[in-house]
Design a protein around this nucleic acid. Structure first.
Length: 985
RNA sequence: GGGCCCAUAGCUUAGUUUGGCUGGAGCACCCGGCUGAUAACCGGGAGGUCGUCGGUUCAAAUCCGACUGGGCCCA
């Protein structure tokens, strides 16, 4: 599967762990936490049930899982661990439309609403298995078997309850307002849906003139700029601004045009003749000839009105007003009493009666109308403009703003409460609270809730002929008001509820349902209570308590994070969540947004299959996930193998040593052993404290960093300096102490890393702990979070840091002395303040130094001076003018000889390894060297033979030439060679 | 037009909250060393206008202002 051996090991271990979890039911047992523990409130933001997961989902799910695993180990009960599915809305409808070739609502109605909804219901969870498998391979534990679904009758009933609550509080009302509208889907969208779909586009940018009525001589015209020529047939007014100065300019053809003085340079050369200047006020009330002769409403139209929304930043200082096609237009139209005129049908086509463009789609009308304006001499300038424009977030059609009947949640009535609730939320990163999200709140408009669609939670409102609205808050109420029992089972989607006629709650007349569904974002915002069928069934939902933790991508600030807030405040008068962790976007390695259409998307399932879940998690945990993240597979692999791979190797090393001798793991804190052991255990405890603090604070970055530092220390210092202890080269007791310390540290770090890298942690826990993957209770994820793993000894930690710094400096001295590391030198002297280095480690500290630097002895000499160490015999490290370290420059003849034996032995050991010999397997060795090396080796023949398990070890002067089985080396100008032959089995 | 975030070596980045010793580290590169777990590790080298300009200060990567570039969101 993967070419990388480290990834291959990780995948093997992961597969083993998954088999164990699944065969013993570990996740089922652990996922909800401790039943009697304190409650940790969480809700999984429901993904759209028919979209595939992308890398951003891996990121937020990693961050969710880390926190949930930590809380479980801390003894909390997770409310709730349920997965969730967002089943309703356009995404599903579009898929079904595509599948059946349906192109409009008319065709859907012909297809049959009941049949259509049925198809949607069946089509909604088709990708659930992919999500489940992604979670499995990422190690994201959720309860998928009891996942909540926004289309379930119980869920819908809870949503109805909440709608009725809003209705009774006067927060759910009908209005006729200009809204963003998708002509393809034939439905309005809410502002947070629109927010998902802005992108760059090119539109016409035309300036036309509108001839003013009256006796001007020469005739005067207003210059008007628009990027939506198709709205000109609906023009009813032109707006100017009272306090802006306008200029009357003479044009080449002798006529005069009026425009804001600030706009003159954009349209005319500097030497143009300005006939007059006047304030906008002076133009109020003037009438003009409309651009197109279309039958519009009432009197008062086609005149200049004043409004402060007019700016001169671009355009001409005159704004064409079509009250049906813009929020400001609507407001001004209403104020001026000209009503609205909407020549478009529900699909965005002009009605048949409109000249020139009758039956044409609004976008198709643009060029036709521009051409006509040109023909009539009204077109002053025609360009195109590149700008951002909203498109339908699902079907990508250009939206239009139009006045439409719609039901609203009156969020603008409680904006201050939204702001206050948000103020108490801990946002990570913190700037979102008052920045991007807070900014959005203060501008919050009413929430356009209703959708003119089919597959969604039906709006539970019935209208009687007198216009009284009856909102139904439960199935029981529905049955009572309809006067007949509901079918059993009852599925409250359009095909059933549309048929029901109710008794009006006000006048008792027959009421029909308002034929709308609701925004699917309302469904998902209801998840904290609706997943429990609140308030109809007893359950763990507490209306007084916010969620403790939510975590999603930044795109949810206008989506789920927002709807959670609105509903929590409107229904329960409290914040929705205490901590909100928001991730940035996941970008490709060149910093572009990943998208399937660009072909630059790293596909999450492939990534997981190649690298494993822990590697993917580690990449997200060690990066700054609050920023946009560039993801490169090679970088993920590198980051993961640096820490997780090293930890895996340390574990393997331990197992290779422990198993042949059946040394049991230390499951309780080992008794105080050597300084090195005490140091490692103190570091383990320091790591425990750091990881605990970080995860308590909901930020896993410092936790992952602490684990990485511990693994570095474990591998590059503890193990490196302890090796001979594990071979039993010290004493049996010391071997046991080293083994106990290492196994205890591995079991400890496994528990600390369990929330971060659950597969590796489980593997270590099982392998080192010798649990045999036998029972669910033995899982590392079922163990309590460690309270104290060892005694912290900061004195020892500091001392070891000092000692390691001295080692590095001594190595530098050795290099300056020009003596290879394998040749022992007689002495290292610690001078001045260095003489006190690592004192808490006692004699052992000096021994560690001696071994690591390869000197016979290390001595402290606080009182000595530089003159005691002449340069002929010593290399000195001098800091601030004073010598700190002195290293004897030359080996004695005996040390030199010993060093050469080690050099040769080392090369032969390497050859043994390359031949694939087991470390205790005998080998036939012929060694060739000239004097004086030959006689040196001869004197140490017995020792060499023992270390190499050589039988026999023969020594010759010069090798037979041209024998390809002979290996030759040269060190510092001295040559030797050898032939190793394995004994026949 | 408005809001928010970001900018440190070829790449990834620590340090910015609370101004203070020669701005650390990893990858890659060059030289050398070490290695019976390791794509590990160790020493040395090369590589930085800390985006630009200005201000505050004894002292600015850090605080303030303006600008440039990138990203996200809104209108």
């Amino acid at each position: 599967m993967s070419a990388d051996p480290d990834a291959a090991h990780a995948l093997d271990a992961q597969a083993r762990v998954l088999r164990y979890w699944e065969s013993t039911g570990v996740p089922d047992r652990v996922v909800a936490g401790r039943p009697d523990g304190p409650v940790f409130r969480f809700t999984e933001g429901p993904p759209t049930a028919n979209g595939a997961p992308h890398l951003g989902h891996l990121e937020s799910r990693t961050l969710k899982d880390v926190q949930l695993r930590f809380r479980r180990m801390r003894g909390y009960r997770i409310v709730s661990p349920m997965a969730g599915w967002d089943c309703h809305g356009l995404p599903v409808e579009l898929e079904i439309e595509k599948r059946h070739g349906l192109k409009s609502k008319k065709e859907i109605e012909a297809f049959g609403v009941a049949r259509f909804c049925d198809e949607c219901r069946r089509g909604t969870l088709e990708v659930a298995d992919v999500w489940r498998e992604m979670s499995r391979q990422l190690g994201y534990w959720l309860d998928y078997d009891r996942a909540y679904r926004t289309m379930d009758p119980s869920y819908i009933e809870s949503v109805w309850w909440s709608l009725k609550t809003l209705f009774d509080r006067g927060l759910l009302e009908k209005g006729h307002y200009v809204l963003p509208y998708c002509p393809r889907c034939e439905t309005p969208l809410s502002s947070h849906e629109v927010a998902q779909g802005y992108h760059e586009t090119t539109d016409p940018s035309v300036t036309i003139r509108l001839r003013l009525d009256g006796g001007d001589d020469p005739p005067r015209s207003l210059l008007v700029w628009t990027t939506t020529p198709w709205t000109l047939p609906a023009n009813l007014l032109v707006a100017a601004r009272a306090d802006v100065e306008y200029s009357v300019v003479r044009t080449d053809d002798g006529s005069e045009v009026v425009l804001a003085s600030a706009a003159v340079p954009r349209y005319f050369p500097p030497d143009v003749t300005v006939v007059a200047r006047l304030p906008g006020e002076a133009l109020a009330g003037r009438t003009y000839r409309p651009p197109f002769d279309t039958p519009g409403p009432g009197p008062g139209r086609y005149r200049v009105v004043l409004d402060d929304f007019v700016t001169t930043g671009d355009g001409t200082g005159f704004v064409h007003i079509a009250p049906s096609f813009g929020p400001d237009d609507q407001r001004i139209g209403a104020r001026e009493g000209v009503g609205v005129f909407d020549p478009l049908d529900s699909r965005g086509a002009f009605s048949a009666g409109v000249p020139l463009v009758g039956g044409k789609h609004f976008k198709a009308a643009d060029p036709i109308l521009v051409k006509e304006l040109a023909a009539r001499g009204l077109l002053v300038r025609s360009e195109s403009l590149r700008h951002t424009y909203p498109f339908c977030w699902r079907c990508d059609s250009p939206l239009l703003y139009r006045a439409i009947d719609s039901w609203f949640v009156r969020t603008s009535r409680f904006t201050p409460k939204l702001v206050a609730a948000n103020a108490s939320v801990r946002w990570i990163p913190a700037h979102l609270r008052d920045g991007r999200f807070g900014n959005f709140l203060t501008e919050a408009k009413d929430w356009a809730l209703s959708r003119n669609r089919y597959w969604g939670t039906p709006l539970p409102i019935w209208l009687c002929p007198a216009g009284h609205a009856t909102c139904v808050g439960s199935f029981r109420e529905l049955a009572e008001r309809s006067g007949a029992p509901l079918p059993d089972p009852f599925d409250p989607h359009r095909e059933t509820v549309d048929r029901l006629r109710l008794r009006c709650a006000v006048c008792g007349a027959e009421a029909r349902r308002e034929p709308y569904t609701i925004d699917a974002w309302y469904d998902s915002g209801s998840a904290p209570f609706a997943q429990f069928h609140y308030p109809f069934e007893p359950g763990p939902f507490d209306p007084a308590e916010p969620l403790d933790y939510v975590c999603e991508g930044i795109d949810q600030t206008r989506g789920w994070f927002y709807t959670l807030l609105v509903l929590a405040v409107a229904l329960f008068d409290r914040p929705p969540y205490r901590t909100n962790l928001t991730t940035g976007l996941v970008l490709d390695d060149t910093g572009r947004k990943m998208s399937k259409s660009k072909g630059n998307a790293l596909e999450p399932m492939g990534l997981l299959a190649r690298l494993g879940g822990d590697a993917a998690r580690w990449a997200f945990l060690t990066a700054d996930f609050t920023e946009d993240l560039r993801m490169q597979e090679a970088a993920i692999q590198r980051a993961a193998s640096r820490t997780l791979g090293t930890l895996r190797h340390v574990t393997n090393f331990h197992l290779e040593n422990a198993r042949p001798d059946r040394l049991p793991p230390a499951t309780v804190r080992p008794a105080a052993g050597t300084a090195l052991d005490r140091w490692l255990l103190s570091r383990l405890e320091a790591t425990r404290a750091a990881v605990t603090d970080a995860l308590e604070g909901f930020d896993p970055r410092p936790a992952a960093a602490s684990v990485r530092e511990f693994v570095d220390d474990l591998s590059t210092w503890y193990l490196r300096r302890s090796r001979p202890r594990f071979w039993g080269e010290t004493s049996p007791d010391d071997r046991r102490a080293a083994h106990a310390t290492l196994s205890y540290a591995l079991l400890g770090i496994a528990r600390l890393a369990a929330p971060l890298a659950p597969f590796l942690a489980e593997w270590i826990h099982q392998e080192v702990g010798e649990r045999g993957y036998a029972e669910a209770a033995g899982s590392v994820h079922a163990t309590p979070w460690p309270e104290a793993l060892a005694d912290r000894d900061e004195g020892v930690e500091r001392a070891m840091d000092e000692l390691r710094a001295v080692v590095e400096q001594a190595r530098e001295l050795r290099q300056r002395a020009g003596v290879r590391a394998r040749i022992p030198l007689p002495e290292l002297v610690l001078l001045a303040d260095a003489a006190r280095v690592a004192e808490p480690l006692g004699e052992e500290g000096l021994r560690l130094l001696a071994e690591e630097v390869n000197v016979r002895s290390v001595v402290r000499a606080p009182a000595a001076g530089a003159s005691d160490y002449p340069e002929a015999d010593w290399v000195l490290r001098i800091d601030d003018g004073a010598p700190r370290l002195a290293l004897a420059r030359r080996p004695t003849p005996e040390l030199l000889e010993e060093g050469w034996v080690r050099e040769v032995g080392r090369r032969l050991q390497q050859t043994r390894k390359e031949l694939g010999l087991a470390y205790d397997e005998r080998v036939r060795v012929e060694l060739f060297a000239a004097d004086p090396l030959r006689s040196t080796l001869d004197r140490h023949r017995a020792r060499l033979a023992r270390e190499l398990v050589a039988d026999p070890l023969e020594l010759g002067g010069s090798p037979p030439s041209d024998d390809p089985t002979i290996r030759a080396w040269e060190i510092d100008g001295v040559s030797f060679s050898a032939r190793l032959v394995r004994h026949p089995a």
